Computed example of a mutant assay.
Amino acid sequence: MKSKHTYYAPTGGLPPQTQLLSDRAIFTEAYAIIPKRVLTDIVISYLPFWENMRMWVIARPLSGFSETFSQYIVEVGAGGGSNKPELDQSAEAVLFIVEGEMDVCIEDENHHMKAGGYAFLPPGCKWTIKNNSDNHVKFHWIRKAYQFVEGINAPEAFVTSDHDVEAIEMPNTEGVWKTTRFTEQSDMRHDMHVNIVTFEPGGVIPFDETHVMEHGLYVLEGKAVYHLNGEWVEVEAGDFMWLRAFCPQSCYAGGPGPFRYLLYKDVNRHMPFIRPKN
């Protein structure tokens, strides 16, 4: 069993009237920062067929913003859950628990999941959620419209945990930069990867990456400085970043502890064309 990790989860509430208005929130054509202070009670959303739940939407498909995925932080109270959580048969999903515990029933098989738990749910999968504990559970729900390819089957559902998957060291980094991969990169059935990236204090992405993958990054632990499209921004546990495809990006982990984030990216598919209308 791997050592335990910590995961930041929002608490909601509302800032006092005496608090300063200015913050680190920013929305640009290349990237957006949603700091943890934004996730208050007045920005919550709800869904049909759920009981005792609320959620913060931190990414949604939108022109000039998250184009390939949506991401929610869902809070479910004691006894809450849903027997009909997903209404789109083309949607695949990853669930990642950051606080508490819950039962996820996938194709009639129950899985009791705790903080660090990870579930992949393929399109058309039958699943339900129930919080059978006395406390709140909070989890990320990342959704994407699955891109079917003729001759390639959609992947199966699976459940695992951050605590049970060994992180892989990035080449020539002496272990200061690692990635926890929950699916094999060579598995063409998957068209999205949701991984966890870890930097030890002082670790860096040593150049401005520019690549075709769109990114959603939720900081689980620690803090860092990011260089995004020519600008420096600070981020900490609880912050969310959206990075457009080809947005230049690098980072420096500030310490004193590890810097870890949950990372979404779209992979393994041709780039769709924008076709002219007749």
Rank of each mutant, 00 (worst) to 15 (best):
S3E: 15
K4R: 07
H5Q: 06
H5S: 08
Y8A: 00
L14K: 12
Q19F: 02
D23W: 00
R24E: 10
E29Q: 09
T40H: 05
D41S: 02
W50F: 13
E51I: 01
M55G: 08
R60A: 12
T68F: 09
F69Y: 15
Q71D: 05
I73V: 12
V74K: 00
V74C: 00
V76C: 04
V76I: 14
G77R: 12
L87K: 08
D88R: 12
Q89C: 04
A91R: 11
V94S: 04
F96H: 11
M102L: 11
I106K: 00
F120R: 02
P123I: 00
C125V: 13
I129A: 03
N135G: 02
K138Q: 07
Y146M: 05
F148S: 14
H163L: 09
D164Q: 11
M170F: 06
P171I: 12
N172F: 15
W177N: 09
K178M: 09
R181G: 06
S186V: 11
D187G: 07
M192T: 10
H193T: 13
T198A: 08
E200S: 15
G203S: 12
I205Q: 10
I205M: 13
P206D: 14
T210N: 12
L217P: 07
Y218P: 06
L220Q: 08
N229H: 15
W232Y: 12
G238W: 00
D239C: 01
L243A: 15
C247H: 07
C251G: 10
A253H: 08
P256C: 07
P256G: 10
P258L: 08
L263P: 00
K265Q: 09
V267E: 14
H270W: 11
N278Y: 08
